[in-house]
């Protein structure tokens, strides 16, 4: 790791102010991506601004049909939270198959979506559930937030404060875990909103990062059942291929995991 200056911010405003004063600052949440990258000397921020101890970024609120998870809430705390369990149990399941216990004790939902790894789990949940990303400057719909590999709509220095999810009628997540990293080799999140809209998002599959799967959405819209997807064909074009999975395999996973996620959603 190169020399850096560490700051522990006590408020979002302080964090934003510190960022403005630094030449090449990075925000640190759970550190599950940034710290390994820094240790490998692949990142050399002049300043690291720790958001992890900011009280206003912690916790979960359930208000009517909206579940709000503050950005620096750890995966572990999300999994344990009674409101999450009650409102969107699919998020609890997603979190339980994310990384390993050590990652879940440190990693945060805000950190995950800000990084937008193409194989991260949470982007699929946000996209399928039609969540809204709240920042210190604005609100961004999930459809507008994820902009491709490791790229988001966030502006320089903008801080995610919370993610709000409309509580769905039904939701499910199924994942084939990457055998080494435990990211999603492919993961599919399916949701049916209370208004009857069907949204399906796949992660770990596309070369462009998390994506909606229109063909499956259309099939489920007319018939919310696993068999509705039987005749859907997913193209391997544009899908990721590596030593752990060919593009054709990932295309198959998008379909099979969607079917299983629908079955899990009930």
């Amino acid at each position: 790791m190169y020399q850096t200056t560490y700051h522990r911010a006590s408020s979002v405003d302080e964090a934003a102010s510190l960022f403005g004063k630094s030449s090449e600052a990075k925000f640190l949440a759970g550190g599950q991506t940034l710290l390994p990258v820094m240790k490998q000397r692949l990142a050399s921020p002049s300043d690291v601004i720790d958001l992890g101890k900011i009280r206003e970024l912690q916790g979960v609120e359930l208000s009517g049909d909206t579940l709000t998870i503050k950005a620096a809430t750890t995966y572990h705390d999300i999994m344990q939270n009674a409101d999450v369990k009650k409102a969107i149990p699919a998020i609890v399941h997603l979190t339980s198959v994310l990384g390993d216990p050590a990652v879940r004790y440190r990693g945060t939902i805000g950190g995950s979506i800000a990084n937008n790894d193409p194989a991260a789990d949470y982007p699929a949940a946000l996209l399928a559930l039609g969540a809204t990303v709240k920042t210190n400057k604005r609100s961004i719909a999930a459809d507008d937030f994820f902009k491709g590999l490791f790229t988001t709509a966030l502006e320089d220095g903008e801080i995610i404060t919370a993610i709000s999810f409309p509580v769905p009628a039904k939701a499910g997540y199924e994942k084939m875990r990457h055998p080494a990293s435990r990211f999603a080799l492919t993961g599919v999140f399916v949701a049916q909103t209370k208004a009857g809209e069907v949204r399906v998002a796949a992660t770990g599959a596309s070369q462009s990062g998390v994506m909606r799967v229109g063909a499956i959405e259309a099939a489920l819209k007319s018939n919310w059942s696993p068999s509705a997807i039987d005749n859907v064909s997913i193209s391997a074009n544009g899908l990721l291929a590596d030593i752990h999975g060919t593009a054709e395999y990932r295309a198959n996973l998008v379909k099979v995991l969607a079917q299983r996620a629908v079955a899990a959603a009930g």
Partner: peptide
């Protein structure tokens, strides 16, 4: 089921970290 130290055709190692080289875990 899991482990394979892989090189590409030019001799570049593809599995030089635990992010790519799949070690068995207890749950496997």
């Amino acid at each position: 089921l899991l482990e394979h130290a892989i090189y590409d055709a030019n001799g570049q190692p593809v599995t030089a970290s635990f992010m790519d080289y799949a070690m068995p875990r207890a749950e496997d």
